[in-house]
Structures are given as structure tokens and as C-alpha cells.
């Protein structure tokens, strides 16, 4: 097993024994850059999808909405009764009336700012913050049926389930794409290495004749390919990170639940892409060169 420091420092002279091959070198660097670019985007998507699944599952899970229907005094009577039920229900942490202005703001994205909301038969809305572990929703609904039959409690489970399912599938899809990118990069680098080895059969013969061991020859090719893959993928990853930087961030106002930019340590994940590309190059090149060497005396 070759030590990594030797790969980066000691074998520079060995790598020189492999002719530069400017065309194939550019191809390896460019393909690594493109693959790394896509890998960073897909990785960001996977992490964002995972986070959204958590957010949608978590943030919405500890809240519910109580809608009180009816007109005139009946609404007030029903609302008062419903609030009494809520305040005496274990697992309900707080309740808050949603005022008319807030309702108007909620409807504005769909109806526009000029809509005559006042004329609409809107229910009275109460936001309920709960502890899902303690709240028995079925019991709450039964009590509401008895004491405030015009009040309907919605724990968002229907909406939440479909959102979480979508995010989870998106995450699986993204990781699948990431795996395909890794496979494609390995295939491309393996083929490029095979082409380079085939083009340098005479170099390999000379090295073998003067007493080079297979490991030495493999490392000479490896170093060249790993360096090109690292350089290209670092460039691609940098472009990818730059693009992610201009996407809506979860920390921005209004994007808490839909921002797909990385959060916290997620920013560090794309940094892993170039080293992974280097490891792929290392493995694929080693395989290709060894395959050729066993066919050569």
C-alpha cells in the first residue's frame, strides 16, 4: 500500500516518466470538473431534501389549527368553548387567535392584496402549539365534538405526510444521482487511464526492462491521474458551491421551510467532493494499469 504523502510529494519524478499527453490530461481534468460540479449540486439537493423532510416532519408536527365555523355570537360561544377544551387538554402548550389582518396576509398570495376578504365566510382560526408526544388528537376531537361542535381541529397530518414523503423521495433520488455520478466518474477515469496506458505501452516496457516493479509503474500513472482529477474536481466543486451560494438560503426570511441552500455543517460537505474524486481516480487508475501490466512481460 502506497503512503499518501509519497503520492503527493516523493513520486513527482516517477510521474514525469509518464508523458504528459496534454489532450487526455485536459479531458480528465474537464470531466472531473463537470462531474464534481454536478456532484456538489446533487449533494446539496440531497442534504436540503433531508433537512426539509425533518423540518416538515418536525416543525409542523407540533402545531395544529382549530377552525371555528358559524356566524355572529355563535362563533364566539363556540370559540370560547373550544378554548376551554384546549386549555384543559394535556399536550396543548399554547393557543393563539389568528386575527383578521393575519388571515388576510395568509390569503394574499392566492387572492391578491386587493381582494375583498371581509366578505368571505372565513372561519375563526386558532393556532395551537402542542407536544405531539403527550397530545391525544382523537380524544381532543371527541371533546370538541361534545363541547364545540362547530370547531374542527386539524393537526396538519395529511399535508405533512405528503410533504415529508416528497422530501424523502427527493433525498433518495438525489443520493441515487450522486451514486450514478460516482460510477460515471469511475468509468470515465478508468477508460481514460486505460487509453493512457495503451498509448504508453512502450514506456511501460522500458520501465519494466530497467527493473521497475509494477507498483512503481502503477504509482507513476496514478499520481498523474489523481492530480488531474483533484485539480479538475476542485474547480468544479468551487463553481458548484458558488451556484449554491446564490440559491435561496434557509436562513433568509420567508425561506425557513423551503430554502434549499446548505445550512451549518452542510456547507462543508461539498468540500469532500474533490478528495472523493481523487480516491476514485486512484482506484480506477490502479485497476486499469494493473490490468495492462499483467498482460505485459
Amino acid at each position: 500500500m502506497v503512503r499518501l504523502p509519497r503520492l503527493f510529494a516523493g513520486d513527482a519524478a516517477a510521474a514525469r516518466l509518464v508523458p504528459p499527453g496534454a489532450h487526455s490530461g485536459l479531458t480528465v481534468s474537464m470531466l472531473s470538473a463537470i462531474m464534481a460540479f454536478f456532484a456538489v449540486l446533487v449533494l446539496a439537493l440531497a442534504l436540503a431534501a433531508g433537512r426539509l423532510a425533518d423540518d416538515w416532519g418536525g416543525s409542523l408536527a407540533n402545531s395544529g389549527t382549530l377552525q371555528v365555523f358559524g356566524v355572529g355570537e355563535d362563533v364566539e360561544i363556540q370559540a370560547r368553548a373550544a378554548l376551554n377544551v384546549l386549555r384543559t387538554t394535556p399536550g396543548v402548550q399554547s393557543v393563539r387567535m389568528i386575527g383578521v389582518e393575519e388571515q388576510r396576509a395568509l390569503l394574499e398570495p392566492w387572492l391578491g392584496s386587493e381582494a375583498a376578504v371581509d366578505g368571505l365566510p372565513l372561519p375563526l382560526l386558532i393556532e395551537v402549539v402542542t407536544d405531539p408526544m403527550r397530545l391525544n388528537v382523537d380524544s381532543l376531537r371527541l371533546r370538541l365534538e361534545g363541547e364545540a361542535p362547530e370547531a374542527v381541529y386539524d393537526d396538519h397530518s395529511g399535508l405533512r405526510a405528503s410533504l415529508v414523503l416528497t422530501a424523502q423521495r427527493l433525498k433518495v433520488f438525489a443520493y441515487l444521482c450522486l451514486a450514478l455520478i460516482v460510477i460515471a466518474l469511475a468509468a470515465v477515469l478508468g477508460l481514460a487511464a486505460q487509453a493512457a496506458v495503451a498509448a504508453n505501452t512502450q514506456v511501460i516496457r522500458t520501465l519494466r526492462i530497467v527493473g521497475a516493479r509494477d507498483r512503481y509503474i502503477v504509482n507513476a500513472f496514478r499520481r498523474r491521474f489523481v492530480m488531474r482529477a483533484l485539480g479538475g474536481s476542485a474547480l468544479g466543486a468551487a463553481f458548484g458551491l458558488g451556484l449554491i451560494g446564490v440559491l435561496p438560503q434557509a436562513s433568509e426570511p420567508g425561506f425557513f421551510l423551503i430554502g434549499i441552500g446548505p445550512v451549518g455543517w452542510n456547507w462543508a460537505a461539498p468540500i469532500l467532493v474533490p478528495p472523493v474524486a481523487g480516491i476514485i481516480a486512484w482506484t480506477a487508475t490502479g485497476w486499469a494499469v494493473r490490468r495492462r501490466l499483467v498482460r505485459q512481460a
Binding site: 520501465l207 530497467v210 521497475a212
Partner: peptide, 17 residues
């Protein structure tokens, strides 16, 4: 010989490998 390296480097090749 390896044509892309110098004569000196070619002669020293067995040492290097």
C-alpha cells in the same frame, strides 16, 4: 529510451525505479 526525459534522466532511470 523515454524520449520526453533527458539523456541524464534516462541513464539514471534504473536508479530511480
Amino acid at each position: 529510451f523515454l524520449d520526453h526525459i533527458t539523456v541524464g534522466e534516462n541513464i539514471a532511470l534504473p536508479l530511480q525505479v
